[in-house]
């Protein structure tokens, strides 16, 4: 119920600002995707530099007979929650199957549900995502669905039992920032579960902006993994995310100067 009643624990949160998802506490509000790094070793260093406590992972079919590096060894740390995703599935049925495989392979019931049948923009299918969320919650999964920045869809997902909603800022990998800003604001205002802004965050300033408008966390991958220096970029995102959060809690000043005193009061003179 993070962020639901901002005032209730206003002062408390300033001192002890934790993100709580499905009963689990997180100090870091930066989630990291592990795709597209140049090596497992760079990825591991970036994870450390980012301070993240939640990393997303994927699954692929093994090709028998080929020795493959065990990447889990680079990721699995006691303070890190693994968040396997269902990337590659195209409908709810495939997602449920993938979820069961993920639970077995990663030893966790946490799941980033992503169903994007459209190979061009990798945009999520809202109908299949909702359907899969309903099924997976009943099966005992902690479901974090990747979804369109659609406030009503987010409410339906929360009602279905999603642990968070993860609306997109812009298409995956586009690095375009908060293209869906107005809708993200509406989602954040109305959501009864934490809102994690996912996809499209291309620069630390985007992450800071998402946090400033009240997002509970951000998920970043491409912007870090393809940076010239991914480890330094991971640290930059760590600081930006924390700064944005701090600014949100501190209360931003007015951006407009349209509220200076007015000489006449045509609308309210009847009160004098």
């Amino acid at each position: 119920m993070d962020d639901v009643f901002s005032i209730v624990s206003f002062y408390f949160r300033k001192m002890n600002d934790k993100l709580i998802i499905a009963g689990k506490e997180f100090s870091s509000r930066l989630f990291l995707g592990t795709g597209k790094f140049s090596s497992n070793s760079v990825m591991e260093q970036a994870i450390t530099a980012s301070g993240t406590e939640m990393v997303t992972l994927a699954m692929k079919r093994v090709s028998l007979g080929n020795a493959e590096d065990d990447m889990l060894a680079h990721v699995a740390k006691p303070h890190i929650q693994l968040l396997p995703n269902t990337s590659g599935v195209r409908n709810a049925e495939e997602a449920v199957f993938a979820a069961k495989m993920a639970r077995e392979a990663f030893g966790t019931n946490w799941l980033k549900l992503e169903i994007h049948p459209d190979p061009r923009y990798l945009l999520p299918d809202p109908v299949e995502t909702l359907k899969a969320t309903e099924i997976l919650v009943k099966e005992g999964f902690v479901v974090l669905p990747y979804c369109q920045a659609d406030p009503v869809l987010c409410k339906r997902l929360a009602e279905a039992g999603a642990a968070t909603v993860m609306p997109l800022a812009a298409p995956i990998g586009s690095n375009r920032g908060l293209v869906t800003l107005d809708f993200l604001k509406a989602i954040i205002e109305e959501s009864s579960v934490p809102v994690v802004v996912d996809a499209g965050i291309g620069a630390p300033s985007h992450a800071a902006q998402a946090m400033e408008i009240g997002a509970s966390a951000v998920l970043v991958n491409t912007a870090i993994s393809v940076a010239a220096d991914p480890v330094a970029m991971a640290e930059a995102f760590k600081e930006a995310t924390a700064a944005g959060r701090k600014a949100y809690l501190a209360g931003l000043g007015a951006q407009s100067s349209d509220f200076s005193a007015v000489a006449s009061s045509p609308l309210t003179s009847f009160l004098n």
Partner: peptide, 10 residues
Amino acid sequence: IIIIRAVCGG
């Protein structure tokens, strides 16, 4: 039979 394993991914 399908065999999958953990890999990096976003």
